[in-house]
Lab assay of single mutants.
Amino acid sequence: TEEFVRLWREAVRHNQTLHWNGTDFIPGDEWAEEFARREEEKL
């Protein structure tokens, strides 16, 4: 979602874990980066 992408970019900028829907998205984590890339492509 647009909100997820916005929060993810913020988390990456501050190198912080994003807690989203009970899942931890960690900047630099391969799975999280791939998920975020797919979400961005949907926008």
Rank of each mutant, 00 (worst) to 15 (best):
T1C: 15
T1K: 07
T1P: 13
T1S: 14
T1R: 15
T1A: 14
E2V: 13
E2R: 14
E2Y: 13
E3R: 07
E3N: 09
E3H: 08
E3M: 10
E3T: 11
E3A: 10
E3L: 12
E3W: 09
E3Q: 10
E3G: 07
F4T: 00
F4K: 00
F4H: 00
F4P: 00
F4G: 00
F4M: 00
F4A: 01
F4E: 02
F4Y: 03
F4Q: 00
F4V: 00
F4S: 01
V5Y: 06
V5F: 06
V5T: 06
V5E: 04
R6K: 13
R6C: 15
R6L: 11
R6A: 10
R6G: 05
R6D: 09
R6E: 11
L7Q: 10
L7C: 14
L7V: 04
L7T: 03
L7E: 07
L7Y: 05
L7N: 05
L7A: 14
L7G: 04
W8L: 01
W8F: 02
W8H: 01
W8C: 08
W8T: 00
W8N: 00
R9W: 14
R9I: 12
R9Y: 14
R9T: 09
R9V: 11
E10I: 08
E10M: 06
E10W: 11
E10N: 07
E10H: 10
E10V: 04
A11C: 13
A11K: 01
A11I: 03
A11H: 06
A11R: 00
V12K: 15
V12M: 08
V12E: 04
V12T: 08
V12R: 08
V12Q: 11
V12H: 06
R13K: 15
R13S: 12
R13N: 10
R13L: 15
R13V: 11
R13A: 15
H14T: 15
H14G: 10
H14E: 11
H14F: 13
H14I: 12
H14P: 00
H14A: 14
N15E: 06
N15W: 09
N15S: 09
N15Y: 05
N15P: 00
N15Q: 12
Q16E: 11
Q16D: 06
Q16C: 15
Q16H: 13
Q16G: 05
Q16M: 14
Q16Y: 13
Q16A: 12
Q16L: 13
T17Q: 05
T17N: 05
T17C: 05
T17Y: 05
T17K: 11
T17P: 13
L18R: 00
L18K: 00
L18D: 01
L18H: 01
L18S: 00
L18G: 00
L18P: 00
L18N: 01
H19E: 06
H19G: 03
W20T: 01
W20M: 03
W20V: 04
W20I: 06
W20F: 11
W20P: 00
W20S: 01
W20K: 00
W20L: 05
W20R: 01
W20A: 02
W20D: 01
N21R: 14
N21A: 13
N21D: 10
N21Q: 15
N21S: 08
N21H: 14
N21L: 14
G22I: 04
G22M: 05
G22H: 07
G22Q: 05
G22V: 02
T23C: 15
T23A: 12
T23W: 15
T23H: 15
T23V: 15
T23S: 10
D24I: 14
D24G: 03
D24A: 12
D24F: 13
D24E: 12
D24P: 07
F25G: 01
F25Y: 15
F25N: 01
F25W: 04
I26W: 07
I26R: 14
I26C: 10
I26D: 07
I26G: 03
P27T: 02
P27G: 02
P27C: 00
P27F: 02
P27R: 02
P27S: 02
P27H: 02
G28H: 03
G28V: 01
G28F: 04
G28L: 03
G28M: 02
G28I: 02
D29A: 07
D29F: 05
D29V: 10
D29E: 12
E30G: 11
E30M: 12
E30T: 14
E30F: 12
W31S: 06
W31K: 09
W31V: 08
W31P: 03
W31G: 05
W31E: 07
A32G: 04
A32Q: 01
A32L: 04
A32E: 01
A32D: 02
E33R: 04
E33A: 06
E33T: 07
E34Y: 06
E34C: 15
E34M: 09
E34I: 08
E34D: 13
E34G: 08
E34L: 09
F35N: 02
F35H: 09
F35A: 06
F35W: 11
F35T: 03
F35V: 08
A36L: 05
A36W: 07
A36K: 02
A36T: 03
A36S: 04
R37W: 05
R37C: 12
R37N: 06
R37K: 12
R37I: 06
R37F: 06
R38V: 10
R38Y: 08
R38S: 10
R38P: 03
R38M: 12
R38E: 06
R38D: 04
R38K: 13
E39W: 13
E39N: 06
E39A: 15
E39L: 15
E39I: 14
E39Y: 13
E40W: 13
E40T: 11
E40V: 13
E40C: 07
E41R: 12
E41L: 13
E41T: 11
E41Q: 13
E41N: 11
E41K: 12
E41F: 11
E41W: 11
K42D: 03
K42I: 07
K42Q: 07
K42A: 10
K42F: 08
K42V: 05
K42N: 07
K42S: 08
L43I: 09
L43R: 06
L43V: 08
L43M: 11
L43A: 07
L43E: 05
